[in-house]
Amino acid sequence: MEAHAEEPSGAAVVADGFGLKGPRGWVFREVGFRAEPGSLVAIEGPSGTGRTCLLLALTGRMKPHEGHAEVAGLPLPRKMAAVRRISALGPVPGVSDLDPALTVDEHLRERALLQRRYDGSLRSLLRPRGERAAATRARIEEALEAAGLDLGTLPKAGRTSVRDLERLEALRLSVALALIGRPRLLALDDADMKLRDADRAAAWSLLRSIADAGTTVLAVCSEAPEGALRVTTAPRATPATDTPQDLAAEDRTADADDTTTADRTDAIAAEDRTADADDATTADRTAAGSGATGGTHTETTTDGDAVTIEEGEGDALAETGRA
């Protein structure tokens, strides 16, 4: 058995005036709550009110723009990477989807191997192969038990394809995959979507049992269950339609913009110098143009000086100004 196989300690989650802004406006604002370790937190609200983005921001996967938040004492956004290490995503459409072509066993083995490879200690990686395989099986069995997924009840046991799973079974598999890493914070989206009443009750019972075992749970839903800490994303007069993918792309663009600010400043300065040089030679160009075809006209400057401008050149300068 691994040295760190003890039950995970849940993470306290605190938010005060928390907000995230996208290209089309504020996705959510003024979110505030405090959740103790091992809490079941239901992020409630209609679709399009920033529920998923709030979930991703609180797990260190999106950068907030105002307010304050902490997860297990780690401030956001300064410690986003550290928050990601102690949190795990269950089902979040477009972010952590299951692969319908893979079987249940393939998903479980892949997640366990990745967990061992990237989060395991050097000592665990150097253990004999038999010990590593036994530890992997133990992690998988532990996660399956916590998620309430009995492979024996599936049509083809572990060889069942994800596409053949019922909605509640797929939810349990996603939760099991997340629990393989023994996170302190578990987050999932649309916890009650497309579930019959009995399945919805079973899903909330599952999440409550995980919270009771010590892991803090954040779950997006349309209606919070009784006994959960309810966090509401207030509707806006003009809801933003930014998706998590839009906001992630914006963060990458913002990082790139930060690295090129000096280049843009230099380019603007060079443009100003070029404009000054053009002004200095305008009189020479107009004087030369007085003998060319295309016609000329005379304008008076604010200083009272008469300036002769070739008509063709005026059109060209106007076109350049629009470019």
Rank of each mutant, 00 (worst) to 15 (best):
Q115K: 00
S124T: 09
P100F: 08
V104K: 07
G94T: 01
E110F: 06
R117E: 13
V104F: 10
S121K: 11
D97V: 02
P100T: 13
L102D: 06
A112R: 05
P100L: 09
V95A: 09
L113Q: 02
E106Y: 00
T103E: 14
S124P: 00
A112V: 12
L114Y: 04
L125D: 04
A101C: 08
A101W: 00
S124E: 14
S124F: 07
R109A: 08
V104Q: 06
L114I: 10
L102Q: 15
Q115C: 06
V104G: 05
P100R: 08
S124W: 07
V95M: 05
L108C: 14
H107N: 12
L102S: 12
L122R: 14
L102F: 15
D105C: 03
P100V: 15
A101F: 14
L114G: 11
G120L: 06
S121G: 14
D97L: 02
R123Y: 05
L125P: 00
R111Y: 01
R116C: 09
D99C: 05
L125K: 15
S124A: 14
R123V: 13
D97M: 09
S96K: 08
E106G: 01
Q115I: 01
E106F: 00
D97Y: 03
G120D: 09
D105P: 00
R116H: 07
Y118L: 09
G94Y: 03
L108K: 02
S121V: 06
L102A: 12
E106M: 03
Q115L: 05
V95P: 07
S124M: 02
A101H: 07
D99Y: 03
S96A: 15
H107V: 05
D99W: 11
T103Q: 13
L98I: 09
R117F: 11
R116P: 00
R123C: 03
Y118M: 01
R117M: 04
Q115E: 10
H107S: 14
T103G: 10
E110T: 15
S96Y: 05
S121T: 15
Y118C: 02
L114H: 13
P100I: 07
D97F: 03
S121L: 03
S124D: 13
R111P: 00
L98N: 06
Y118R: 10
E106L: 01
D97R: 12
P100H: 11
L114R: 14
S96V: 11
L108F: 06
S121D: 01
S121E: 05
E106H: 01
A112K: 03
L98H: 10
D97N: 13
E106T: 03
R117I: 03
G120S: 09
D99R: 02
L108T: 05
